[in-house]
Structure formats: structure tokens, C-alpha cells
């Protein structure tokens, strides 16, 4: 009896491993090995063009602690996340509720909300480059009707980050709307019927039924948008190259600069390890604290 039980767990385990094997191999090659190698490399100094690297312990990390650009980039990334994540989520939720209601031309409006998602970020960045152009760009053109002077949105440190945030929210809100739309359609309609019979106000209905039951979707969207805030840097390459004076530089773009413009592999690896740690911390917080408070229907 005991033997048979062990035998079957072995079998189950064996099967699971067997089925996991293909993805495990790819994960090892493309994720685990590079992570370990990056951590290893972050302890070395490799001068440009030289093939031998020197072990320098934690010096790369010490350098970063004193590196003004690094702190600027971290600060920017936090503002960028604070600017994009909540706004995208609220906007997406509002858009989803709007197009879920019985309105005319529903599918047309859905399409309009969704289409920025379909366009590649590079193309979007080019479009917005024109929108933000001082003088005759779209926004400045509209501003001039109200007698407001030309604003160089991408050329000054005060506005460049806000300009990027608006663009990214515009791009990703439609994508998140799709998840909310699916979430809304999963909420049983009889709950709303009850609310109607009870005479609950629209706001209370949203507060007590829609919002809590959308929580799993919100968690999912929150994770995606927060990681996006660290992952999406394509637009920087097109629009500002991190300028003026690093005012629009983000962590991942800085890693790119250090790795492929300066060819300082050790420092770039150290930066990557820091980015990895930030991502892990985010994931841990989300899965272990937020997850418990969410009611999956």
C-alpha cells in the first residue's frame, strides 16, 4: 500500500517534470543562465575593448551609489511609474465601464479606444514627436488659439517627463480596457438585478459590486503596468535619447547606454542586477500581500 502510493507520486512527479522539461530547458538557457552570468559579471571591471576583466568585488555597486545619473534615473523611473500606473488603471476601468454599457456605435468606440495599442511604440513615438513639436506641432497649434505661447515640451526638464507619461497612458490604457471588459462580462448579472430591485445608486453599485469583483483584473493590470513602467523605453530612443540632461532617462535605457554606448559590461551588469531586484521585490509584494486581500469570485 505504502509502496504503491510512493510509486504513484513518483509517476506524477516524473510526468510533471517530463512535461515541464521543454520549457525548463528554454528558461534555463534564456533566463536562469543569463541571470547568474549577469550577477557574476557585475563583480568585474571590463574596460572597453579589452578581453580580460578584473575582479573588483562590489566596486561597481559602490560607483553607482555615487553616480548622479543613476539616482536621477531611479527618481525618474519612480515618477514615471507613479504617473503611468494609477492613471492607466483608472482610465482603463472608466473606458471599460463606458463601452460595456448599452450605447450606440459601441464597437466603433471600442475600436477607437483600442487602436493605440495596435500601433508599435516606435511609430507612436514618431507621431507624438510631431504632436509635441514647438511652434507648429499639434498641441502648440491648439494652444496658440488660446493665445498661449509655444511650449517646447520635450526640450525642457520641467515638462519632458509629463509629456512622456501622457503618451504612454494614451498608448496602454486601451490595452488594459480589454481586460476590464472581460472582467466586467464575468460579473453575474443577477447581482446587478438585485441592486436594481434594492434601488442602490449607480455609485454604490459600482463601489460594492463592480469594483470588488474586478479586483483580480486590477491586480493583473497593476502588475503588467508596473512592469511596463520599467520595461518600456522604446519611445526614449526616438524622442529624447534620455535628454535634456537625463531628465527623461529611465533605468532600462541607462542600462542600454552603459552596455552598448559605453561598453562597460561590469557596470551594466550591476545596473541590471539592481533592476532585477526591484522587479523581484515588486512581484513578492504583489503575490504575498495584495493577493490575499483579493476576493476571487
Amino acid at each position: 500500500m505504502k509502496n504503491g502510493w510512493r510509486n504513484s507520486t513518483f509517476k506524477v512527479n516524473f510526468y510533471s517534470w517530463l512535461f515541464l522539461l521543454p520549457s525548463l530547458i528554454f528558461l534555463t538557457i534564456f533566463t536562469f543562465y543569463p541571470i547568474l552570468k549577469t550577477i557574476y559579471q557585475s563583480f568585474f571591471q571590463s574596460m572597453q575593448g579589452e578581453h580580460d576583466s578584473v575582479f573588483i568585488g562590489l566596486d561597481n555597486y559602490k560607483y553607482l551609489m555615487e553616480d548622479e545619473v543613476f539616482w536621477e534615473v531611479i527618481k525618474n523611473n519612480i515618477w514615471y511609474a507613479l504617473g503611468t500606473v494609477p492613471t492607466s488603471i483608472i482610465l482603463a476601468m472608466m473606458m471599460a465601464c463606458f463601452v460595456n454599457a448599452k450605447i450606440r456605435a459601441k464597437s466603433w468606440i471600442r475600436t477607437f479606444f483600442f487602436y493605440p495599442t495596435v500601433i508599435p511604440t516606435i511609430a507612436i513615438a514618431n507621431i507624438w514627436l510631431f504632436i509635441y513639436t514647438p511652434g507648429y506641432g499639434l498641441i502648440n497649434h491648439i494652444l496658440s488659439w488660446f493665445g498661449i505661447g509655444s511650449v517646447n515640451f520635450l526640450g525642457q526638464s520641467e515638462t519632458v517627463m509629463a509629456a512622456m507619461i501622457v503618451m504612454i497612458v494614451w498608448k496602454q490604457a486601451g490595452y488594459f480596457m480589454i481586460f476590464y471588459l472581460a472582467g466586467l462580462q464575468n460579473i453575474p448579472t443577477n447581482l446587478y438585478e438585485v441592486a436594481k430591485i434594492e434601488g442602490t445608486s449607480a455609485w454604490n453599485t459600482f463601489k460594492t459590486i463592480t469594483f470588488p469583483l474586478l479586483m483580480p483584473t486590477t491586480l493583473f493590470v497593476f502588475i503588467i503596468s508596473l512592469t511596463n513602467a520599467f520595461k518600456l523605453v522604446d519611445h526614449i530612443i526616438v524622442m529624447t535619447q534620455g535628454g535634456p540632461n537625463n531628465a527623461s532617462n529611465l533605468l532600462l535605457y541607462y542600462i542600454y547606454q552603459v552596455a552598448f554606448r559605453f561598453w562597460d559590461k561590469g557596470l551594466a551588469s550591476a545596473l541590471t542586477v539592481i533592476m532585477l531586484m526591484i522587479m523581484v521585490i515588486i512581484a513578492v509584494i504583489q503575490f504575498f500581500s495584495l493577493d490575499r486581500k483579493i476576493h476571487y469570485s
Binding site: Q156, S157, G243, P244, N245, N246, Q257, R261, F262, D264
Partner: peptide, 21 residues
């Protein structure tokens, strides 16, 4: 030598002066 880095340093600082930082 290390051209990429020198460019970055001078460009960043020139822009800092141009935007008034």
C-alpha cells in the same frame, strides 16, 4: 579614448546649461 562616455558627459552638461539647470 572612451568617446561614448565623454560625449555623454559633455552633452548632458551642455544641455543642463541650455535648459538653465
Amino acid at each position: 579614448y572612451n568617446n561614448g562616455r565623454i560625449y555623454q558627459v559633455i552633452n548632458d552638461n551642455l544641455q543642463a546649461a541650455i535648459v538653465g539647470d
